[in-house]
Design a protein around this nucleic acid. Structure first.
Lengths: 106, 106
DNA sequence: TGCATATATGGCACAATAACCAAATGTTGT
DNA sequence: ACAACATTTGGTTATTGTGCCATATATGCA
């Protein structure tokens, strides 16, 4: 990796990092259908609301979601829906792994 | 997120985690063309070979790459090429971010 | 067998992340 | 202006990730 490439791979890694947490992935999944306010996540997740806010902030910083405030509430939505397509690939990886595990046990 | 969903999102997150490092992303990129032996990565990256070996191990554990030993050398290759398609989406995110930055500066 | 090469693994120091609590900010309704 | 609510931010601690060094393991060759 040369010096020119480094910032590019750093930027890419930042995006993967932002998705590298089960709670954030779940949030992205929820946002696939429609926008959600923070309060909905607070209801549906069993973690402190400050934690939820920080997770959303990570996704926002990475450019995955965008937000806007309407009244007292802040709504988040997916900014880049192509993320969702990748989930199929992720499933493929998981299945391929599962099969391999099964094969090793036999 | 209910209890049934949790393991699924953990598994997905593991895959994103494995890709959430510039060096590992670069490796995946190199493997897009063809398999590589560890020694090639050692030549091209400016980190200790033990570090490289560990990065590859993370990718292997996640099911992204597979390896086989031929003589003294261990060759790694992409197990799930669909990973590469996602990179386009990642680029889109980065570009959208860049544009936004530009807009904010104006 | 002994030696050089290629890779993996264990251990330690340091950096980054995550979760909670507490406090700050912004908004609506009284 | 004040109280109630929604969200963000700062601080602290626990956990995890990273990188280096030293060491172990495996292979090929003299």
């Amino acid at each position: 990796m040369n010096k020119k490439e480094k910032p590019l791979y750093d930027a890419r890694a930042k995006i993967f990092k932002s998705l590298a947490h089960p709670t954030r992935l779940w949030m992205v999944h929820q946002l696939a259908d429609s926008e959600r306010c923070v309060c909905e996540f607070v209801d549906e997740l069993d973690v402190d609301f400050s934690t939820i806010s920080k997770h959303l902030s990570v996704l926002k910083q990475a450019g995955i979601v965008e937000d806007d405030k309407r009244g007292k509430q802040v709504y988040y939505r997916l900014k880049v829906p192509c993320i969702l397509k990748f989930m199929h690939c992720v499933e493929a990886v998981i299945e391929s792994q599962a099969k391999e595990q099964a094969r090793l046990i036999k």
